[in-house]
Design a binder for these strands. Structure first.
Lengths: 119, 119
DNA sequence: TCAACACTTGAACAATTGCTCAAATGTTCA
DNA sequence: TGAACATTTGAGCAATTGTTCAAGTGTTGA
């Protein structure tokens, strides 16, 4: 990021004090990244529906596929994403793998967001 | 989505009752979509940092660019996304456009998510 | 040991994303 | 009016995403 005129506005900062306040109260980079990462995982309709489905208790991959009306494969791919981000847990029982919410607390985000979405 | 064996598991559903419960308590499609859409917008580090910066009050595009250390252009592009999703509001004063949070309530999502991220 | 089955995985693909660069707007002030 | 400047916009691009298809793994029971 070069420090020339094309890059930012030409004064050092239009409102230096406001910039300083904003800068000093900003989150550490890693927290910003983690925050965005979590929201990004939540920001897909398929994954949203999987998390909603698991609200009522554990389900196997086949069950989830039926609830969503989607292929086993794509559900499994998304379950992997959710697993990798510690949003769901898997438990194998014979041939069947059961999934549960790793931390139902995460659904608090759904509630808050729904309030916003519903205005 | 064809209804053949390659598509889902071979029984109608492994746990029909659980599937029925999950299905009947699921969100309407449009709410799922809106929910995911909101999280998706929140799920980018640049946009996260913009929203955090605006927490301390209104800033112009140039200010935000300074706080983030990013080009005016990319900040403006992201502000457009935030505007289109009603997360920020713009107010023009002469040559300068000031941005504010459209609904600071949205930052409640940050707080809740930060708790989760921080374990 | 082998077929059946629940699930996972990898490659391939179109679609979407976030950035940069350059050009266009809109506003002020001389 | 025209130059200066804050911001927006559009095209172009590499990178990422979500799905499908086909092949793979792991477990059960005959």
């Amino acid at each position: 990021m070069p420090d020339d005129k094309s890059y930012t506005c030409q004064v050092r900062a239009l409102h230096e004090d406001a910039v300083e306040v904003a800068r000093s109260s900003s989150l550490p980079d890693d927290e910003v990244f983690e925050l965005a990462r979590l929201f990004k995982v939540l920001g897909d309709p398929t994954r949203t529906r999987i998390l909603r489905a698991l609200r009522s208790g554990e389900l196997c991959v086949c069950d989830i596929s039926h609830v969503l009306g989607m292929s086993i494969s794509s559900v499994s791919h998304q379950l992997r994403v959710l697993r990798e981000h510690n949003l769901v847990k898997a438990r194998r029982e014979g041939k069947i793998v059961f999934y549960t919410l790793a931390d139902p607390h995460v659904l608090d985000l759904h509630e808050t967001a729904l309030e916003h979405v519903r205005e």
